[in-house]
Design a protein around this nucleic acid. Structure first.
Lengths: 191, 191
DNA sequence: CACGTAGTGGCAGTCACTGACACAACGTGT
DNA sequence: ACACGTTGTGTCAGTGACTGCCACTACGTG
């Protein structure tokens, strides 16, 4: 009885998150998720390519935020300032969806398989940023390094933000960028 | 008939690499690998926790190289110069084992599951470096950022090294570090 | 009211991976 | 020479993620 197709997908997602929260990712079977959502296991795999992907449904927006941030930066801006601006633009949506991020981080911390998927998504996103920077005129080599480093700074900032409850993300981002600048400049290697 | 236990493991690894090279990772079953190695499928899983891990057996040495490099840096050295030195020390072993790295990269490029595992291993290694930097007296926040960024530079250098056949790794590393320094310094953001 | 389409159920099957038990090869001590 | 613990292995049954195939049912459109 296909009401709209999207309803089933949402029921599946809710069922999965509920069960994962209650018993952990590994102790839940896809059949159970489907049963709680009122559909068949087969239908689960019609909406999600695999069991882990249910957790990353909200992360699709992250890609959109990144793309939107990139297009909003004036053309002609150099790669590194562009990346810095993109990170700043990502702060508001990330703060607004902290709950989702925390939930995913909690499950990932307890589930290697989920951790792997998260790491792969991150790597993929870095590649996407590098491609878009290149499309904006940056040298490919430079774009890749900027994307890696800039995202690394953001990821680091998010990490310390998560470990400091009650704080805002932006200061962590600023501190991380400042720290990076100080490191690369400060202790000048003699070689 | 346990000759030494290690023999079987090596036969399994060779069998797996042979089959993967011939037909691709996904088209090979663990039963086939075991059969070619002259053992049972069960024995395969006694030597390797899962199918993908056969590919990363050589990567165990990477962790050792990193640890050795870190311990060889004189105590008291600041985090960022330490990281820079570690990367330099990793160049020789990485160059010596380029074939292994290329083989793994080729399979990973064609197999998402292997790519995921590689990304996860990289993330884990970054965490390990951060921990060891912290143990050497660095502030945890600084250690984490240094490990992320330094490894990012190395990964980027390895990437361009792979795309430039016949070149040495060290120049790519030097160029990446210089490029990073120029970026962070050069175009000073007005904000 | 016929008709194409999208979403679903049902089913059989593959494959990665695990637990439990029994057995064979070795090393060691007596 | 013999008992014994250890280690590596074979065998078997089982779970669970994931897929292909076919039939069916709701729905929108003309």
């Amino acid at each position: 009885m296909p009401r709209s197709g999207k309803e089933a997908r949402e029921r599946l997602e809710n069922a999965a998150l509920t069960l994962f929260a209650a018993r952990g990712f590994d102790a839940v079977t896809t059949a159970e998720i489907a049963a709680l959502a009122g559909v068949t296991e087969r239908t689960f795999f019609r909406h999600f390519p695999d069991k882990r992907e249910v957790l990353f449904d909200g992360e699709r927006r992250l890609t959109e935020w990144v793309t939107e941030a990139l297009t909003s930066v004036p053309a002609g801006t150099a790669p590194w300032p562009t990346m810095r601006r993109v990170v700043d633009l990502l702060v508001p949506p990330l703060e607004a969806n902290r709950a989702d991020g925390d939930r995913l981080a909690a499950i990932a911390a307890a589930t290697p398989a989920v951790q792997e998927r998260a790491a792969a998504k991150e790597a993929h996103l870095i590649g996407l940023i590098a491609d878009q920077l290149t499309a904006r005129g940056a040298a490919p080599e430079e774009a890749s390094l900027v994307a890696r480093t800039g995202w690394g700074v953001l990821a680091h900032a998010i990490g310390s933000w998560r470990r400091a409850p009650g704080t805002r993300l932006q200061p962590h981002v600023d501190r991380a960028f400042d720290l990076l600048g100080g490191l690369v400049l400060g202790p000048q290697p003699s070689s």
